[in-house]
Write a protein that binds this DNA or RNA. Structure first.
Length: 105
DNA sequence: CGATTGACGCAGA
DNA sequence: ATCTGCGCCAATC
C-alpha cells in the first residue's frame, strides 16, 4: 500500500491549470474520504518541497484556507493568472472544481 | 511508542 | 445566510 501522502501528492499533481480541488476531494481520491486534514498537514509541511501545485487546493467553501497573508495572496494571484475567477473571496466551485473521471458530465 | 499537528468538513443553532 | 463546536485520521515530533 502506498502512503496516503504519496497518493495525495499524485492527485494534486493531476489538477489541471484553471481548476481547483478541495481538501476533501483530494483525500477521497487518495483513499481516505475523511482525511482532509491530512491533506492540509501534508501541504503545510511539504508543498514547496514536492513542487506541488498547492495553489490549486482550496477548502469546501471555495475559499483559500491559508492563514499566512503572503501565501494567501500568492495563491489568489496564481489562480487568477490561470483563469480562475473569484467572487469576492470565494471561488465558484460549480465552475472551477476539478473531478477526475467526472469530466464527461 | 504516545502525543501533537493540521492550509478541513459538516451538522446544528 | 453566518457562527460554533466536534469529529477525522495519517504523518511527524
Amino acid at each position: 500500500m502506498e502512503t496516503f501522502t504519496l497518493n495525495a501528492i499524485r492527485v494534486i499533481q493531476n489538477i489541471p491549470p484553471g481548476k481547483v480541488m478541495t481538501y476533501g476531494q483530494i483525500a477521497a481520491h487518495s483513499g481516505s474520504p475523511r482525511g482532509a486534514r491530512q491533506v492540509a498537514r501534508l501541504l503545510h509541511s511539504m508543498s514547496a518541497k514536492y513542487g506541488l501545485p498547492w495553489h490549486r487546493v482550496v477548502n469546501a467553501a471555495g475559499v483559500i484556507s491559508i492563514q499566512d497573508k503572503e501565501h494567501h495572496l500568492m495563491q489568489k494571484e496564481l489562480l487568477q493568472s490561470e483563469g480562475v475567477e473569484f467572487s469576492g473571496a470565494k471561488i465558484d466551485l460549480r465552475r472551477f472544481r476539478f473531478d477526475p473521471g467526472e469530466d464527461r458530465i
